[in-house]
Design a protein around this nucleic acid. Structure first.
Length: 219
DNA sequence: ACCCAGGTGGCCC
DNA sequence: GGGCCACATGGG
C-alpha cells in the first residue's frame, strides 16, 4: 500500500468515527497504570479498577510502591487477572520510582532507549511499552494490538503470523513521524475493529472498502 | 451457556 | 523460536 493511500484511510476513519480522544486518563502516570490493567481486558473493567486505585490514593508511583501486594490485588480485581496485574503494577511502580523518582518529566532519554528499559520490566511487553511511550510520553511510536492485526490480516495486507515489529513498521514507514497522528490513528483502528471488523464481521459496511478498492476483506 | 475483551511470561520441544 | 497454556472479571 502507498503512503498517501494509508493517509486516506486515516481521513476516512476520522470522518466515520470522529476523534477518539485517547487516552482517557487524568495524568500520564494513570495512562501507564491503565496500559498494564487493560492487557487483554475490556476498558470498562479497567475503569472500575482505576477508580478503586484513585479512591485509595494510589495513583502515584510514590504511593503505589508502598502498598501491600494483596491490597493492590483487591483494588484491581475488576480488571481481571488481578494477582498477575498487582505484581505487574508493583514491579512497574518500583522501577519507575527508583529509576525516575516517579516523575514522568524525568523520562527524557531517547525513545528506543526508554522502550528497552520498559521492556525489561516484568509485565511490560511491546504493546504496553508502546502505549506508555505514545499516550503517556507523546513519543511517535505506533501501537499495535489485536485489533490492528485483525483488520490488516483480513484485508490481506499482512500475514497472520507477522511479528509485532512488522505490523508496527507497516504504519511507521508509511506515515509521517507524528505522535498526534499515531495517537488518533491507533484509536480509530480500534474503533474500526470494534465496529464492522469484529470477530463476526460485517464487512459489507467496512469504510476501508472505499480506500482499498483492490482489496477484498477475507471474511 | 457460551464468546469476547486495547497481552504477557513460563514452559515445552 | 514458535506453539500452548494460565491468568479472571464483567458485558453481550
Amino acid at each position: 500500500m502507498e503512503p498517501d493511500q494509508l493517509m486516506r484511510v486515516y481521513e476516512r476513519l476520522l470522518a466515520r468515527f470522529g476523534p477518539q480522544k485517547w487516552w482517557p486518563a487524568r495524568s500520564p502516570f494513570e495512562v501507564m497504570v491503565g496500559a498494564v490493567l487493560t492487557q487483554n481486558t475490556a476498558w470498562t473493567n479497567v475503569e472500575k479498577a482505576i477508580r478503586n486505585l484513585r479512591a485509595a490514593g494510589l495513583l502515584s508511583a510514590r504511593k503505589l510502591v508502598g502498598a501491600p501486594r494483596d491490597v493492590v490485588a483487591e483494588l484491581v480485581r475488576p480488571s481481571g487477572y488481578y494477582n498477575v496485574k498487582a505484581d505487574r503494577l508493583l514491579s512497574f511502580a518500583r522501577w519507575f520510582w527508583e529509576r525516575y523518582g516517579g516523575r514522568v518529566s524525568a523520562m527524557r532519554g531517547a525513545t528506543q532507549e526508554l522502550r528497552a528499559e520498559l521492556l525489561a520490566v516484568r509485565g511490560i511487553g511491546e504493546e504496553t511499552a508502546d502505549s506508555m511511550l505514545l499516550y503517556a510520553l507523546g513519543r511517535p511510536v505506533f501501537v499495535v494490538d489485536a485489533y490492528t492485526r485483525r483488520v490488516l490480516v483480513r484485508h490481506g495486507l499482512l500475514g497472520a503470523k507477522a511479528p509485532y515489529s512488522e505490523v508496527q513498521r507497516f504504519f511507521e514507514e508509511r506515515l509521517p513521524r507524528d505522535a498526534s497522528l499515531y495517537n488518533e490513528f491507533h484509536a480509530l483502528w480500534v474503533a474500526l475493529g470494534k465496529d464492522v471488523c469484529r470477530p463476526s464481521p460485517r464487512c459489507e459496511v467496512c469504510p476501508l472498502r472505499e480506500c482499498l478498492p483492490d482489496r477484498v476483506c477475507a471474511t
